[in-house]
Every structure is written in structure tokens, then in C-alpha cells.
Design a binder for these strands. Structure first.
Length: 602
RNA sequence: GGGCGCGUGGCCUAGCGGAUAGGGCGAGAGGUUCCUAACCUCUCGAUCGCGGGUUCAAAUCCCGCCGCGCCCGCCA
């Protein structure tokens, strides 16, 4: 509703300005401060004051006077507050919002855009367990994918597997070279990546510590693996693939706990085997920007503001990671309308080189999008899989669940309502709140900001955290459940014996909602689809987290001031129940975008 | 050295050209005969890193400086 209201306001204001012979290029539409009783405002009067030769408040009055509102569905009227022109929504705006949101479990999902987009995220090298520093990628990436899906895009989620580099050759060599007896530690966890990473660490330690002859022999073996991959040798693919698939399987299980699921794991070697990397290299050689310097083929990208030359073929004629990634991205272009990549700031230069080169090769790089996030630091340094340092994501999630379980159990004692949480409920809530808190803490911040990981901060369940907004959903569910138990039947809201809700049957009067808190909550509900649209346009899922917080404030005010089940009249009660249903759908879907579960009770 | 990013009350954070800079944590005071108090109300606390500039209007844009992070491999 907000989106339609906004376009009506824009059209009406543009018409008014045109009628006054004033420029319509910048309408200055903005959201008024919270304490202003207006749905939208315009600051055009400031800009036009000079042109008109009047003071801004007078210009605002003139403009407001000229705005015609009769043809709109949702604009009740226009007035001014000093230099601002304020637009007010009418009753039908709230009524239609209630009608739409109360009966639609998918409320907030925008119409299909008939546009496909591939979201690539995480893509961590399969070298060992996922640590929390890496966790920002799947958490942000999953939210970006969810967001685009809600915004009407047809989304595929890809994990790009770097299975062709030296790291994997070292890993494969180490796995074949050493035995369990050579390792000095038990796996930290009973899962493949924890088991195999010990070989990887052992191999790296060996390469650093062993005598020269032994290292030389090992390097020869590692080189032969790399050459085998480059030459398309099937047996080498199988050897490396065995290690990659095993480790990846474990990492997949870890990421699945978030949960972050993928539609496809795209292997880098695929673009070596199908010849597309060779094709890229050949085409690059033909461009004006290619130079052969210091025995290697390079690309001059200073035209794109990048001083650093990009080497795309080694002196031994083999390809590099970026060359393969070029082939990978042309493959994306061939199969999708848009491609979004979520990556750490340490890959920024590489991404810029990739973009520039793709453009050079004749691709439309406007179809490409990036979400770049800063590194997550530990209080005392970095995390490294090779050295085995860092906090593992599994450990963080376990700790989060444990603490959430403690919180549920301690809170059960001082509950007002003596409801019956079963052991299964406690466990369910502990998972929803614990994992939700970790995700929410990370996804709610601007990706560009650096994060220092602190156990206490990440697992704070008070106030601006996942449980705060999840609680709103639980309260909605509680009220709806209470109403159903009391035999209160609201058409369009209450499910029948089969659990089905008749979506056409909503018959409540939004006009019955005279309380400000209820109307304000409905206004927040109305904003949700626009929030999805804006967040998707800018690839900024954290703004949805901000929305959930503001929405929670509005709901809590409503909850405090508007008894639902015990409302004075049936009409009021039914209208409020519909508001609760609308709020539940809104919060449920906002949390769904963030990848945070919405508990029915907690 | 160069490039990119970040710098908002003691701590974390939203806002990123417009109406008195929002929240949370913390500290202090209250609130539960009423749909879950993981909640709410009130109080305390900010030269929006520093200095210039643009603008009717700057936390927001531009320039310089300072601090922090990341990057600058024929690694991935």
C-alpha cells in the first residue's frame, strides 16, 4: 500500500509543480520524522524558494494548494508544516493494508519480476572447518538471496568451489602421503572436515619443517597434481575430487545448521575441463589491453582505474584463478539475467579486476552486483585454517544454543502464564533463539563495518537482538492461539477444522481501530513491501533488520495499549485480531528474509 | 608509498543532503489482579575523528589531515 501511496504522491506533486510551471526533476519526497503525523513529506519548497522568490513556507503553501488529491486511492490530504509539504493517508490506506496483510501469509513478497539472479556466496576453500570469521559470508549471502527472492527475483544460490588451486593440491598430497598414525591430534568433532583438516595442517607443517630433500619431493608431487588438473587428467580430478567432496560435505553440514542451503556447488575445474578458460585466455590475447611482459600474458586495466596489471596466463601457459573466474562469470551471464556475489573486502581488488575484464570482453557488467563485507577479527588476532587458529562456527552455534537453553529454563520460573513448555519446546526454542541471535547480530550490521568477535556481544539475548524481535512473533501467535482456544472466529483470520484459512472471507472494519497504537502498527505493516523493495535494490539486508526493530517497537506499543481477546466490542476485537494476523505475517516474513526463525512460542 | 573501506554518548549501532542525530548496552527510578515482563515507561549521557569548502540546509557531498582495517603474488 505504501508503494502505491508513494507513487500517487509523486504523481500528484509532479502535476502540481507542472501546473505552477516549476521544475519536477527533484520532488524531495522523504519520510517525515516519527513524531510528525504524516505518511510522506516533500522538501521541494526549499529548492523552489529561490526560483519563485518567496520564503519556503509560502512556497510550500502554494504547492500544497495546487496538489489535487481527488483522483488518488490513498491520499487523504495535503498540508504544510513550515517549509514542508506533508501528505496524509486516508482510511482506505489502512483498510486495504489490513485486508492484504491479515490474510496473506506471503505478505511482503513482491510480484514476480521474471528476472533470474544467481547469488554466489561463501565459496570458502574446502580446506577445513568453517570458522566464525567466514560466517559473515553465508549469513549475509543467505539473507541477500532471501531478500531478492522476496523482491520477486528468481534466485539460485551458488557456492563456487576453488578445487583447482595449490591449496587443494597440497591437501590432496598430504591426505595421500600421511596416515592416521602421523597425526598428533584427534579430530575436534566427528565430521569429515575436522578429520581431514588434520592432514592439511600436517602437510603444511611438513612443508615448513622437513629437510630440503623431503620438501623437494613433496613439491614435485604437488606440482604433478596441479599439472594433472591443467592437462585434464581424469585420474587427478578423481584424487583431488575425493578430498574436496569429503571436506565440502562436512562444511555443507555446518552451513546447513545456520541454515544456509545451496542450489549448486560449482567447481572451478569445470571451466578448465570444458575449454572455456582457454577460450577466455585466447580472446584476452586479442584485445588491445593485452601485453606480453616478463614472459607472461598480462592485461593493462588502467583505463578502469586499476594500476595493477592482471596476469591471465603464466609463463608456463597455465591459467590463474581469475582467468577461470572469468569463464565462470561468463557462464553466469549465459544462464542468468543478473549475478550477485557476496565477498570479503580482501577480494575487492580482484573483484574490480574481474568486472573490468568482463566489460573488456564485451559483457554488460551492469548485470553484476557485489556485497562486500569487512573481516571479522578475534580480539587477539586473525583466524587461520592452516594454523588451526580461530573460533569454529560449530562451537559458536553450540554455545549459542546452550546459552539460549539456559535462558529459556531460567525464564520459565518467573513466567506470568503457567503454560506447558515440553522438553521438545525448550529444545526448539533454544535452537531458534540461539542460532537466530548469531545470525541477527551479524546480518543487522552494515557489512562494510569491521566486527570484532566477542562471545558476550554475539550471544546477548537482551534488547536489540533476535529474541527481541522473535518475541513479537511469539506474542502474535499467542494471541491468535488464545482467541482460537476461546472459540473466537474471525473470518479470514481463524483457521477452520482442517487448518485452512479462508483468504476471501476477511470481514472486519479497519475503521474500528481508533487507537493510535493500532493505526501506527498498521502503518508499519504497510511499509514492509517498500522496505523489501528498497533493501533488494540496494542489496542491503541489514535494513530489514532495522525494520524488524522499528516494527517491534510499534507492536509492543499496540500490545500494551490494545487488549485483543478482551476488547470492549466484538467488532473491535475482530479488527484487532486481524491486525495481529497482519503483524504476524509481516514479522514472520521479515525474519524469513534475515534467515532467522519465527517461533510460535518462546 | 598507492588504492579501497571505516571513524556517531563509556561500549555497540541506525541514519548517509533536509523538520529537536534514532535505538540498544551501561547507570539510576518505576511498572505484572489484564492476550508470555526475552516486555514497557521515565532519567542520565553526543563538539556525529580533526580542519577547511560547497549549499537556503552537511553526521550525510568535496578537499586536506589523523586513526584503524583490508588489498597492492606468474597464490586462492
Amino acid at each position: 500500500m505504501f508503494r502505491q501511496f508513494r507513487s500517487e504522491v509523486e504523481a500528484a506533486l509532479a502535476d502540481a509543480l507542472a501546473e505552477l510551471d516549476l521544475p519536477t526533476d527533484d520532488l524531495g519526497i522523504e519520510r517525515p520524522p516519527d513524531d510528525m503525523d504524516a505518511t510522506l513529506a516533500s522538501s521541494v519548497a526549499f529548492r523552489l524558494a529561490g526560483e519563485v522568490g518567496d520564503a519556503p513556507p509560502d512556497v510550500a503553501a502554494t504547492v500544497a494548494e495546487a496538489v489535487a488529491v481527488d483522483d488518488t486511492d490513498y491520499v487523504a490530504g495535503v498540508d504544510t508544516a513550515g517549509p514542508y509539504v506533508n501528505f496524509h493517508a486516508n482510511e482506505r490506506y489502512l483498510a486495504d493494508t489490513l485486508d492484504a496483510a491479515a490474510v496473506d501469509a506471503d505478505y511482503g513478497a513482491l510480484p514476480d519480476r521474471d528476472t533470474s539472479v544467481v547469488v554466489e556466496h561463501t565459496s570458502a576453500n574446502p580446506t577445513g572447518p568453517v570458522h566464525v570469521g567466514r560466517a559473515r559470508n553465508p549469513i549475509v549471502g543467505d539473507a541477500v538471496a532471501n531478500l531478492l527472492s522476496y523482491a520477486g527475483y528468481d534466485v539460485d544460490r551458488h557456492y563456487y568451489v576453488n578445487d583447482a588451486g595449490r591449496q587443494m593440491a597440497v591437501f590432496t598430497w598430504a591426505y595421500e602421503r600421511f596416515d592416521e598414525a602421523d597425526l598428533d591430534a584427534e579430530p575436534a568433532r566427528d565430521r569429515a572436515e575436522y578429520d581431514l583438516v588434520r592432514y592439511y595442517r600436517k602437510g603444511n607443517a611438513f612443508l615448513e619443517e622437513a629437510d630440503d630433500d623431503a620438501v623437494e619431493a613433496a613439491e614435485a608431487e604437488i606440482q604433478s597434481i596441479l599439472q594433472g588438473l591443467e592437462a585434464g587428467d581424469e585420474e587427478t580430478y578423481e584424487r583431488v575430487g575425493a578430498v574436496v567432496d569429503a571436506v565440502l560435505g562436512g562444511m555443507k553440514a555446518c552451513l546447513g545448521r545456520l541454515p544456509a542451503e545451496f542450489d549448486e556447488f560449482v567447481k572451478e575445474t569445470r571451466f578448465m575441463r570444458d575449454g572455456s578458460t582457454d577460450d577466455i585466455a585466447g580472446r584476452l590475447k586479442e584485445t588491445d589491453h593485452a601485453v606480453y611482459e616478463e614472459d607472461a600474458w598480462q592485461l593493462e586495466l588502467d583505463e578502469w582505474g586499476i594500476d595493477k596489471n592482471l596476469v591471465f596466463l603464466r609463463s608456463d601457459d597455465t591459467s590463474l584463478y581469475t582467468t577461470r573466474d572469468l569463464a565462470h562469470h561468463e557462464w553466469k551471464f549465459a544462464n542468468y539475467d543478473r549475478a550477485v556475489t557476496v565477498l570479503g573486502e580482501d577480494h575487492k581488488l580482484q573483484a574490480d579486476q574481474l568486472d573490468a575484464t568482463l566489460e573488456l570482453l564485451g559483457n554488460d557488467t551492469d548485470r553484476l552486483g557485489h556485497v562486500i563485507y569487512s573481516y571479522v577479527n578475534l580480539p587477539d588476532g586473525k583466524m587461520s585454517t592452516r594454523q588451526g587458529t580461530g573460533v569454529m562456527l560449530d562451537d559458536l552455534l553450540d554455545e549459542a544454543i546452550d546459552r539460549a537453553r539456559d535462558a529459556v529454563e531460567s525464564r520459565m520460573d518467573d513466567r506470568i502464564r503457567d503454560d506447558d513448555l515440553t522438553d521438545a519446546d525448550v529444545e526448539r526454542i533454544a535452537h531458534q533463539v540461539g542460532i537466530g541471535a548469531v545470525r541477527y547480530d551479524i546480518v543487522s550490521k552494515q557489512p562494510a563495518k569491521a566486527i570484532t568477535f566477542e562471545w558476550e556481544d554475539a550471544l546477548d539475548f537482551e534488547a536489540q537482538s533476535a529474541p527481541f524481535v522473535q518475541y513479537v512473533h511469539a506474542r502474535c501467535a499467542g494471541i491468535l492461539g488464545e482467541a482460537a482456544a476461546a472459540g473466537i472466529d474471525v473470518p479470514g483470520v481463524t483457521a477452520d477444522a482442517d487448518g485452512d484459512v479462508d483468504l476471501e472471507a476477511l470481514d472486519v472494519d479497519a475503521g474500528a481501530l481508533e487507537t493510535d497504537a493500532a493505526r501506527e502498527l498498521l502503518r508499519e505493516v504497510a511499509r514492509f513491501p517498500a522496505a523489501i523493495e528498497a533493501a533488494a535494490d540496494d542489496l542491503e539486508p541489514h535494513t530489514i533488520a532495522t525494520f524488524t526493530r522499528e516494527f517491534a517497537d510499534a507492536y509492543n506499543a499496540f500490545y500494551r495499549e490494545c487488549p485483543v481477546v478482551t476488547a470492549e466490542t466484538e467488532a473491535l476485537r475482530d479488527a484487532r485480531l486481524a491486525v495481529v494476523a497482519a503483524a504476524k505475517h509481516t514479522m514472520s516474513n521479515a525474519l524469513d528474509v534475515l534467515g532467522v526463525e519465527a517461533p510460535e512460542s518462546m
